[in-house]
Computed example of a mutant assay.
Amino acid sequence: MTSLSICVYCASGTDDPSCLELAAELGTAIGRRGWRLVSGGGNVSMMGVLAESARVAGAHTIGVIPKQLVHREVADTEADELVVTDTMRQRKQIMEDRADAFIALPGGIGTLEELFETWTAGYLGMHAKPVVLLDPIGHYDGLLDWLDGLRTRGFVGSGALDRLIRTTEVEAALDACAAAAAGGNRG
C-alpha cells in the first residue's frame, strides 16, 4: 500500500485523559501503517502526544508551526521535519500541501477553523482529499446538530455534509483515508 501523509488537527491545550488517549491511539495507528504524520508542530497536549506516539510507532513526523507559536505551543523539536512559518495562513497551506488526507480530533477554535477551511476547500473542488471527523467522545455532537439544522434550513447542502466523513473509531478513520487515496482521490 502507498505510504500516506495524514494531517491531523487537534487541541494543543486540553489535559482531558480521553482526548490524550485518543491522540496516542491515532498516532500509534498512523505509525503502525508506515504512514507520515503532518501536525501543527507543537509538543503539548493532544498535539504532542499524537506526534510522540506516531514517532514511537515508526512514523515520519512533520510539524508545521508559526514562529509566534514556537514558544507558546512549545515546538516539537523532535519532529523529523519542523517547518517554522511566518503566518498561520502559511502553516495551513503547507499542512494542506503535505497531506493526502485530513483527520480532525476534538479541539477548540483553532481546530475548528482548520477543519472548516479544509472541508470547505474540498467541497468547492479545490482538493479531492478526504476530510475525516474522528470523535468517539461526542465532542462535536452539538456542532453536527447545528450543521444539520443549517441543512434543513437550506444554508448547507447535503453534498457538503456528505463530504465530511464521520467516525468514532481510529481504524475506520484511517481506512477512510486509505480508501479515498486508493480511489484516486489524492489531490
Rank of each mutant, 00 (worst) to 15 (best):
V64K: 02
Q93K: 15
S53R: 03
T152M: 08
I165T: 14
L144R: 09
T168P: 07
I137C: 11
W146C: 06
Y123I: 05
S158D: 05
T167I: 09
D145W: 13
L144Q: 11
L4T: 03
A75L: 07
G157A: 11
G63K: 02
L133A: 10
G108C: 07
G142R: 14
Q90K: 10
L115N: 00
M95Q: 14
A121P: 01
F155E: 04
A172K: 12
R33M: 02
L105K: 02
T167K: 09
V38S: 02
D135T: 14
A54H: 06
A101E: 00
E52S: 14
V56Q: 11
L82T: 11
G110L: 06
S45G: 12
K129E: 02
Y9K: 00
L26T: 08
F102Q: 01
A51Y: 00
Q93V: 13
L124D: 06
G58L: 08
G58H: 11
T168N: 14
D148R: 14
K92E: 05
R151Y: 01
G122D: 01
L147H: 01
R72L: 13
V44S: 08
T2S: 12
G41L: 06
V70H: 03
P17N: 11
T85Y: 01
T120N: 07
E25K: 15
L22C: 07
L143S: 09
L150H: 04
N185L: 13
A24M: 09
C7K: 01
S12L: 09
T152W: 06
M95P: 05
W146T: 09
R89K: 12
P106L: 04
E114G: 04
W35Y: 13
G63A: 09
T87C: 05
I94V: 15
A51F: 02
H60R: 15
S3I: 08
P130Q: 11
T2G: 04
